[in-house]
Amino acid sequence: MNAPVRVARDYESGQEVRWCPGCGDYAILRAVQKTLAELDADPSNTVFVSGIGCAARLPYYLATYGFHTIHGRAPAIATGLKLANPELDVWLVTGDGDGLSIGAGHLLHLLRRNLNCQLLLFNNEAYGLTKGQYSPTSRIGTVTPSSPAGSVGDPVSACRFALGSGARFVARGIDTRIAELQATLSAAHAFPGTAFVEILQNCIVYNDGVFADFTERSVAAERQIHVVHGEPLRFGPDLNRGLILDRDAFALRAVSVGADGVPEQEVLVHDQTNRALATLLATMEGPDLPLAVGVLFAEEGPVFEVAVRDQVEERGHLPLSDLLRRTSTWKVSP
């Protein structure tokens, strides 16, 4: 007999949502709730763990277990949690400052270990909760209270960081493309291992429109490519554009496809098990190349908490009284 199917509303905690009106976080929260409903996730077996920042408030708004921890440390907390109970379905929520600045060290190790969890990194290229300073993903020249003359230093690319850290699942979503984001979250959930999802999220107060070049309705089709494993890498209003490999430049190039351009068969087909291709896709930034959205890379491998538990099983179990006597002992008689 099937349990009653849950709906998105069943995952609302009832806590008043306190993000700024118009914040992209609302859309992401909705996408998460709808995804949980679609998965019919058991709220009692689901845990959201977050660090600090606007994004990190998300667990309070979900009717699951939730742990709002400290700045940057959600990956470490989640690792201990999964070691204690590998059966839990664990989601991590972080931001560009939380995950790529103060907590970058933990994130790297989470990704290389391949703990079975989903990690959502809300990237708004700004520190929101601390009132608008530039973040590690802010583009050069970003003017903020702490960088009045514009920020200096190259930004980090979240997806390339993940790929470079050895992540086995790397995806990108956008807060204005909820249907695609939901599909990506479902794929992330299905993946056995750490599923890294960067979500471009508009901060309406401190960095409004920072992704407009890609996300404005008028340019979205030209500037986004939604990648699907096994499908040609095509985009544009009529899918009249495509990506080919420029072998001389060792880079991707956007071209017109069809009668006026390159033949269809020359367009690259997305292979999500190819880390090199994923890296090229993650590297694409305007103006000549579209932003890659969807599952860029997915390749299964050993899962950390399973491997740890297996080792413990293999190591065996001796009575404490035997362990105490694994050295010379002597007896004193009464």
């Binding site: 440390r73 470490a76 933990h106």
Partner: peptide, 13 residues
């Protein structure tokens, strides 16, 4: 820090 946090996560679990 990761060690302390993982221990807290384990206790939470």
């Amino acid at each position: 820090i990761g060690a302390a946090c993982a221990a807290i996560g384990a206790s939470y679990g």
